[in-house]
Amino acid sequence: MMSEDTTTKQHGMSTAGYVRIALILAAITALEVSTYYVDFGPFFMPSLMIMMVAKFVVVASYFMHLKFDNKIFSWMFYTGLFLAIGVYVAALSTFKFFMA
């Protein structure tokens, strides 16, 4: 049994905090778009992937409150996410998608 007091948690953060998060997201987006114009060479793919994951995690953790909420929610969401990544990456590999 989980404890009953989990509902009394504080909901997220202050308005200023949310605005800061949004500014960070905007900055990463600007950086992402810049890869389209500036040649990142071998760092192109890894940096895009890292920025995508960073944005994803920030929105999920702060805007969707996963960081502050009960861990069950994170488990449910990330189980679905990793299951999706697992099966679809495996399926695409059988098409030799990542060999190119």
């Binding site: 697992g86 099966v87 495996a90 590999s93 059988t94």
Partner: peptide
């Protein structure tokens, strides 16, 4: 159960590794 689906497709030419 999520990691075995392609055994329905052994005859479809998946390639030896898969």
């Amino acid at each position: 159960g999520w990691g075995v689906w392609a055994h329905h497709m052994f005859a479809s030419g998946l390639g030896p590794v898969s």
